[in-house]
Amino acid sequence: MPARFALQAGERVLVSTRAHGLRLLRPFLVLLLTVFLLSLAQRALELRWRPVAEPWTTVRVWADAALLVAAAWVVLRRCARPVLRWWRTRYVLTTRHLLLLRPGGPPVSLPLAGLLRVSAEPGRGPALGRRDGRVVADFGRLGGLRLEHAPEARQFARLVRDAADAERERVAGAWAAPPGAPGPGPTRVGRDAVVAPRPDPYRPPRRPWV
């Protein structure tokens, strides 16, 4: 499961999603190529090398086993692992925070009250009717987030912008409350956030799911 996060009092989840399924295209192509090359290598051995005496028959068995082990390693490393990371990584928008939940690390959580700007950039490659893209959120000195292959990127960015406007109004009202009223809670910024003081949201992204 992805890293869990605790909602503050009165906080609600608005959007909880994961990267577009197009992100699985590379693992799928790697799987097809691996199966093709394994079949080709096994067929070549069958046609070109058929030993009938020791120790070559044993060498042939070990060669077949080595091919299977190599193919399994590629599938686990380049196919199963990216798919698992894709499944366990989520983009979450609440009424107070924008979060990146990923396996193997704490959630990256940034307060919407500190949002400076958010934009949706088109995805790489031809459009072909795609609606996914990169959502870039700049939080000034707090850092920022780049959410790759966010589904419905333009709509997601608009929801972030609207939620940030509502949160700033809420925070302004909270500071105008009588003394002793609780203010906004603390925020944790993880290693996937853009470093202050002046983050550049248009630099190449860092992908935590390599």
Rank of each mutant, 00 (worst) to 15 (best):
V135M: 11
W73A: 08
S119K: 13
P186H: 07
E152R: 15
R124H: 15
G104I: 09
A3K: 02
H149F: 09
Y202E: 12
A19P: 02
S119Q: 15
T34F: 07
A176P: 01
E169F: 05
D138P: 00
R168K: 09
L159H: 12
A153C: 07
V136I: 04
G21T: 05
Q42L: 12
V13W: 12
A120E: 03
V160A: 00
P122F: 09
G105K: 03
P106Q: 07
W175Q: 10
L25P: 04
L110H: 08
R131I: 01
A53R: 09
R141M: 04
V92H: 04
A172L: 11
V195F: 07
L159K: 13
L142W: 03
T187A: 14
W175E: 14
R85C: 07
L25V: 14
Q42D: 15
V13R: 14
A137M: 01
W73G: 01
P107A: 10
T95K: 09
A70Q: 00
V52A: 10
W62Y: 13
R206L: 14
G105L: 00
V52I: 06
G105A: 15
P106N: 05
A72V: 11
V194T: 06
A3E: 10
R23S: 15
P205Q: 03
G190K: 02
A153W: 12
H97N: 13
L99V: 10
A6H: 07
A176W: 02
R134W: 11
R146W: 02
G105Y: 02
V171G: 00
W87L: 14
A193N: 00
L7R: 11
S39F: 07
A177P: 04
R50Y: 01
R161F: 12
L68N: 10
R60L: 11
R78W: 09
L142G: 00
L32E: 09
L99Q: 03
G123Q: 15
L40P: 00
P184G: 00
V15L: 15
R23K: 14
A166S: 08
G129A: 06
P208M: 00
L76F: 07
A71S: 15
L116H: 11
Q42T: 06
T89M: 10
L84F: 15
L115F: 04
W209V: 06
G133W: 02
A113M: 01
